[in-house]
């Protein structure tokens, strides 16, 4: 019985770590989005450069930014997030995968 109480805590510490990863992803997303949009977009429109027809600030901030986030999320899911059971019964057989 006693060691059963330890396992849920371990799942919680994994969950806490993944919540922090969520915040880091959002922080990175904001920096990328803001940096390209206002870093390249604040000059006057006559000086804009264009990529595939889009103004460069928009292309990097919104289009590339979205693709980068989708790839990052996929990488995080594949390599960082851990699988775990959500129920407390039948814990033993699934603990190995944690």
């Amino acid at each position: 019985m006693k060691d059963k109480k330890i396992k849920p805590d371990r799942r919680f510490s994994i969950a806490n770590r993944e919540a922090i990863i969520g915040c880091l992803l959002a922080a990175f997303n904001i920096l990328w989005w803001y940096g390209f949009a206002y870093g390249m977009g604040s000059k006057s429109p006559e000086e804009y450069t264009y990529i595939f027809g889009f103004p460069a600030w928009f292309f990097y901030s919104c289009i590339v930014g979205f693709i980068v986030m989708a790839v990052l999320v996929a990488v995080v899911v594949k390599f960082v997030l851990k699988e775990m059971p959500f129920t407390d019964d039948g814990e033993e057989d699934e603990v190995d995968s944690v």
Partner: peptide, 27 residues
């Protein structure tokens, strides 16, 4: 459009923040 793209975060943020802890606790 730039403003609307702030919504990309909803795709991953909600599930990561509430995440597994919410799933375990609500069960």
């Amino acid at each position: 459009v730039l403003l609307a793209m702030t919504q990309v975060a909803t795709g991953y943020f909600v599930l990561l923040i509430l995440g597994k802890k919410f799933a375990i606790v609500t069960r």
